Simulated scan of single mutants.
Amino acid sequence: MLVRELMTADVETVQESEDVSTVLQKLAERHFTGFPVVDDDGRLVGVVTQRDMVELFQPEHRTVWIPIGLPPFLESLEYGFELSWDDLEASLDLASSAGKPVKRIMTEDVLTVEPDDSVDDILEILAHDDRDVNRVPVVEDGDLVGIVTRQDVLRALHAERSGE
Rank of each mutant, 00 (worst) to 15 (best):
A28T: 09
D130L: 05
V113Y: 00
V145D: 03
M1Y: 03
D143Q: 10
G163N: 00
S91K: 07
L144G: 06
L94R: 13
V139W: 03
D141G: 07
L74P: 00
V54Y: 13
L77G: 02
L27E: 08
G69P: 06
G99K: 01
D120H: 12
S162P: 01
E16M: 11
S91P: 00
V113R: 02
S118I: 02
V148R: 00
E18T: 01
D93V: 15
S91N: 08
V54N: 04
I147F: 03
H128E: 14
V11C: 03
R150A: 13
S17K: 11
D117H: 04
E55F: 10
M1D: 01
E164Y: 09
E124N: 11
E89Q: 14
V133P: 11
L92F: 05
D116W: 10
L92W: 08
E114M: 08
A98T: 08
T149Q: 08
R43V: 08
P59N: 12
L157C: 07
E18W: 15
D116Y: 06
L111P: 00
S97W: 04
P101Q: 04
Q25Y: 09
L24C: 12
W85F: 13
G99F: 00
D132T: 02
T107G: 09
E18F: 13
I147V: 14
P101D: 05
F73S: 10
I66Q: 04
T33H: 10
G163D: 06
D39Y: 07
V64W: 01
G146D: 01
L74V: 13
R155M: 03
L56A: 15
D141T: 00
S162L: 07
L88N: 12
V20P: 01
M53H: 06
K26R: 15
L74D: 14
R104Y: 10
D10Q: 14
V139T: 14
V119Y: 01
L44S: 06
R161M: 13
D39W: 04
P115M: 01
R30M: 10
E12M: 14
V11T: 10
L157S: 05
M53I: 15
F57T: 09
L6K: 04
V148S: 02
G99C: 02
Q58E: 12
E78W: 14
G146S: 12
A159Y: 15
V138D: 07
T112R: 07
D19K: 14
D152L: 04
V139N: 08
L154F: 15
